[in-house]
Design a protein around this nucleic acid. Structure first.
Lengths: 212, 212
DNA sequence: GACATAAGCTAACGCCCGTAAGTCTAGAAG
DNA sequence: CTTCTAGACTTACGGGCGTTAGCTTATGTC
């Protein structure tokens, strides 16, 4: 993770061959703007440039257009999320039930700690217009695959260990489980205060994983 | 529902005492812009005015600012959604299980048929900034209460009829059920094509209502 | 030390936005 | 027929946006 740039002195130009560093700084600046709590509309090409301490057109050396910046942020944060889920999985007791709750709660925590990030990752707003040529469908389809795969594995382990009675369709079960998690995560990322019981996350996991 | 205005002749001024009609036409124009498929950013004060065939400043006679238009649209569509759920409930066979699936699927259908509307209703994007004085927290809190109440009733009927084993917390169970529905509905409203099995909606309902 | 070039800048264009201030006019009231 | 006013309109300001075109200046190489 690149440390956020907070508009200090005029900014030292990068050395030759290190121009690519600015790319990471631009992403970090966009992320910082997001985390500052305004909504995603505050992340404009110009505001990102200001935050990074560069002139707006300098961005074009690294990104084709404004949606491309958002895509890069989303891709990076998907990796961050995946890493968080993996860490939760690895640090938990090795039994499948514990791992399932650990991964599920890590997912929910991410949305609660970084609501703005979660919204651009899954809220669909920044999605480029259909005639955008700089972002392909493949870019969009590949988002979040790694994180979802981990969920499939853990849910599969629950069924293998006999603590959940799955159907014949593990993938479908995992989709349903993720949708439930997403519903809560998204709501937490959107609403000022989420009503409902505190343990609603665990309830969702129990019900959708069909734990015995 | 007011029929959409498509910028015909210069527009006849409303009669005296009927100035309020324009308010409905403004809401209809905003809804039409939304349904045209662009994202919610396309619904600006000026674009709404163009769509309604009026001058931009004329809106200020009826709405304090741009977020207030969105709030009115959301409030109206929440009523539309509630009506759709009620209709599904009333037209279904009177047994609780059938009604539960009818209401749940009506909810999911709304999101699929009107993805843009669903996104502004639950996507949280249009939410005014904290220092906005024209929209109160009470306005936001009261949104969707009627629709949710119906869900609580139907789920309660399932438990009463003994086809679902609820916990001691009906309200919490209903929240969990709604969150699952919302997860799927939102994803359908956001993504170009939703992966996963076709019956994932029914699976969510079965699992989260704890149907026997 | 000259010079080639990567890295980033300045200036500017055209567009759309929200909103304020003041003006016109059709139709109801007398 | 006049008068009044609700229900609009015109004009304008200031600002932010994405993006293009062309220029500057450090940095590494010879």
């Amino acid at each position: 993770m690149v440390t956020a740039v907070t508009n200090t002195e005029p900014r030292r130009r990068n050395r030759r061959g290190e121009g690519g560093k600015l790319r990471d700084e631009i992403i970090a600046a966009a992320l910082a703007l997001l985390d500052e709590g305004g909504d995603e509309r505050a992340v404009t090409l110009r505001s990102v440039a200001r935050k990074a301490g560069i002139a707006a057109p300098s961005i074009y050396a690294h990104f084709a257009d404004q949606p491309s910046i958002m895509l890069a942020v989303v891709q990076q944060e998907m990796d961050t999320l995946t890493a968080a889920l993996r860490e939760a999985n690895d640090n938990a007791d090795p039994d499948a039930r514990t791992r399932l709750f650990a991964v599920g709660n890590a997912y929910l925590d991410f949305a609660q700690v970084h609501p703005q990030r979660y919204r651009i990752m899954f809220g669909g707003l920044w999605t480029p217009s259909v005639d955008d040529t700089s972002i392909t469908d493949a870019d969009l389809d590949s988002l979040g695959v790694a994180a979802f795969t981990l969920l499939v594995e853990v849910l599969g382990a629950c069924i293998e260990e006999g603590i959940a009675h799955g159907s014949d369709d593990l993938y479908g079960d995992a989709v349903a489980l993720w949708l439930g998690l997403h519903g809560l995560a998204h709501q937490r990322a959107v609403v000022r205060k989420m009503p409902g019981p505190a343990d609603v996350g665990d309830r969702l996991i129990r019900a959708l994983a069909h734990l015995k």
